[in-house]
């Protein structure tokens, strides 16, 4: 019997290797995000952004780019029989959940590693917000990965999954987006980072992560049964 840890590493490694070889999701996500910045530049008719406008543009773009990746996270499992293999393997099934959350988290982190600097170059006159922003990015990524994995695994077995993922996910991440944009709005303040309320909002992000981690961990088993 393989330990959960080994199984987790094996599954995560498989996902990352597959992505590295096929490049199925990440390049599309990055391209999408950068193009969206350009659309915002003309849609809002601004060349620099600050405050809540900067936070809104950044998080909207990351959210929609993330949905592109979430849509695909379980497709290969379905098409190539990964689900059946997991069902047969003598490992705890929640390992699949945690490994997918981790994979999605890494995708999002790589996406942001490229896209956030681009955002700063495009729109931010002052880059001092980027340091503390990392904390918000990590917290929001975790919540986003948990919910994305949950929703994606629910939608993958249905008709019209491409439609269902954004439909189900968008209302669910509204609180996360509220907290993430509110926490970043102060950081992007035109007069330099403002930490008023930053900690409280970070706490809300953490609470959100915790609750849905628990929910996901509790219910994921039922999504795999057949």
């Amino acid at each position: 019997m393989t330990s959960s840890r080994e199984a987790f590493m094996a599954l995560l490694g498989k996902d990352l290797r597959t992505e590295l070889r096929t490049m199925r999701s990440l390049p599309a996500m990055v391209l999408f995000a950068v193009t969206t910045f350009i659309i915002f530049r003309y849609g809002l008719d601004r060349t620099t952004l600050s405050g809540s406008l900067a936070g809104g543009v950044l998080w909207t773009t990351l959210l929609f780019a993330g949905i592109l990746g979430i849509n695909r996270i379980f497709v290969s499992e379905l098409e190539e029989g990964g689900f059946d293999a997991i069902r047969l393997a003598p490992v705890d099934r929640t390992v699949l959940f945690t490994s997918k959350v981790a994979a999605l988290f890494i995708y999002l982190a790589v996406l942001q590693l490229i896209v956030v600097p681009v955002f700063a170059v495009f729109f931010l006159p002052d880059w001092s917000a980027l340091g503390p922003l990392v904390a918000v990015l990590i917290g929001a990524n975790l919540g986003f990965s948990v919910l994305g994995t949950l929703i994606s695994s629910m939608a993958v077995n249905s008709r019209a999954r491409d439609l269902l993922v954004p439909l189900l996910l968008l209302p669910l991440v509204v609180p996360l987006m509220i907290a993430a944009t509110a926490a970043s709005a102060g950081l992007f303040d035109a007069a330099g980072p403002d930490y008023d309320g930053f900690g409280t909002w970070l706490l809300v992000v953490g609470l959100y992560d915790g609750i849905f981690l628990l929910v996901g961990y509790a219910v994921f088993d039922f999504l795999l049964e057949d």
Binding site: L150, S158, L168, P175, I178, A182, V204, V215, F222
Partner: peptide
């Protein structure tokens, strides 16, 4: 089964959402 998972997730979401919107 999936509908039940949805119902549970959304049920947990209700109070959390009210808190976040009220704080904003």
């Amino acid at each position: 089964r999936y509908a039940s998972v949805f119902a549970i997730t959304a049920g947990a979401f209700v109070p959390l959402n009210f808190m976040a919107v009220r704080m904003a």
